[in-house]
Design a protein around this nucleic acid. Structure first.
Lengths: 230, 230
DNA sequence: CTATATTTGCGTAATATTAACGCAAACTAA
DNA sequence: TTAGTTTGCGTTAATATTACGCAAATATAG
């Protein structure tokens, strides 16, 4: 009897977006019955014939219509054997990023509502999804300091002040604008475009672009991205 | 039909040990039939009523008798839906460390043989276990540079030269002995004992001990462990 | 007993990186 | 015109890293 097992395998995605100088997570309102509505992370059971990664992509596609700029596995939640009250379910959580600056999300087939939720205004979610988000934020913060994933949250062409702001708000730290700029520019993977951004006040700012190719070349040469703060 | 699912959930553990200036992984010889023997990572199916973590601990206990000094979740392998030819199985892999310097392993109930295998002499293993090991080594290397897990691979009291050697062999890098010592000592979480180690030649060396308490206090103060190499 | 090889433990100088600022340029709004 | 704001480029001081030198403490060989 030792080997009897009836465990369901699900995937969930924590999708981060950044706009209006704030960090957001993508949430959906789950239809259980017609009562009992809960906000939750997009996700669902893995199908028999699809890989874990395919499952997340499918679920995200069914429930939202965002275009991911980054995705990787985050953590597998299966220590609380009652995390789902109906069956034993373990969930493989994925961590994803998206450029939310100019993106309209709409509910798709599976979910009633899809919504960006500010990171500090997240309600109590279904299952252990609040836990997943915690872990996701942890990963986001860590990764921001040793991989150039900040660019995946911004539009292709962005202002230095936006990049700086992204770092400050997500890491909840102060930073010297001038040193930050110098450091990032010194890496040599940013390109100045000849476009300017419409600004409300102050000197017009050049738009920059992240050159992933150049970054990869640097990586091969042993380069190691790092942004530290005091 | 969309929701039909028959996926088994397994756990596997990659246990690292360090002795004789080399890195080892713990392998077991699986009994399938009486033919068909393969080396594999310790692991097995999760029971209905135990958490993932409990499952790994149990399996390790059943198959080996090592005393872990560190364990955390590594990665969940479920993208290759044929990774096990019999059923669809996803495996949650765990990453563990052990002080192998003074440890005798013996096969326990479940496994025929248990053995330390040198990291560069690993044969083709069952399932995708070679892949898991790759991922494990990656994690070990990364973690060694930003968390003090090296001490979990050494005896409680160790020589500086052993610590240095551990870093050099695992990270496959050269390092200046004197700068390394200075840097680690500057952190202030090592304690000198009044014991000396029996040495074959050269000046007798003091034994040191890692004070986890002091390390945690430092962490609270915002300290960030880091060992970098050129 | 002495010389040699070996490993430890401590130090110092050159170099590189980070942190803390100053300030003019280029715009908007009043 | 003037005041307010944001950008872009510098400089300097403090800190950290790198590259070594060298004596102390042992074992071993002669």
């Amino acid at each position: 009897m030792e080997n009897f097992q009836n465990i369901r395998v699900a995937v969930d995605a924590i999708v981060f977006g950044y706009k209006n100088n704030s960090l957001y997570v993508l949430l959906i309102e789950q239809k259980f019955g017609s009562a009992d509505k809960y906000w939750a992370l997009p996700g669902g059971l893995v199908r028999q014939d699809e890989s874990l990664k395919e499952a997340v992509i499918r679920e995200l596609h069914e429930e939202t219509n965002v275009h991911l700029t980054f995705m990787e596995q985050l953590y597998t939640f299966g220590d609380d054997i009652y995390r789902d009250s109906r069956n034993r379910v373990i969930s493989v959580a994925y961590f994803a990023l998206v450029d939310a600056s100019n993106l309209e999300i709409k509910a798709d087939t599976d979910a009633d509502k899809v919504q960006w939720c500010k990171i500090n205004e997240i309600p109590t979610l279904a299952f252990d999804h609040n836990l997943i988000i915690e872990k996701g934020i942890e990963r986001l913060k860590a990764k921001l300091t040793y991989e150039p994933i900040g660019f995946d949250l911004l539009p292709q062409e962005f202002l230095f002040s936006d990049l700086e702001n992204l770092y400050c708000t997500i890491l909840e730290k102060e930073i010297d604008r001038r040193n930050f700029r110098k450091k990032i520019l010194s890496y040599g993977f940013l390109e100045q475009t000849d476009h300017f951004s419409p600004v409300k006040s102050g000197r017009p700012a050049k738009l920059f672009r992240f050159n992933k190719l150049k970054y990869n070349v640097l990586l091969d040469k042993g380069f190691h991205f790092e942004i530290k703060f005091a």
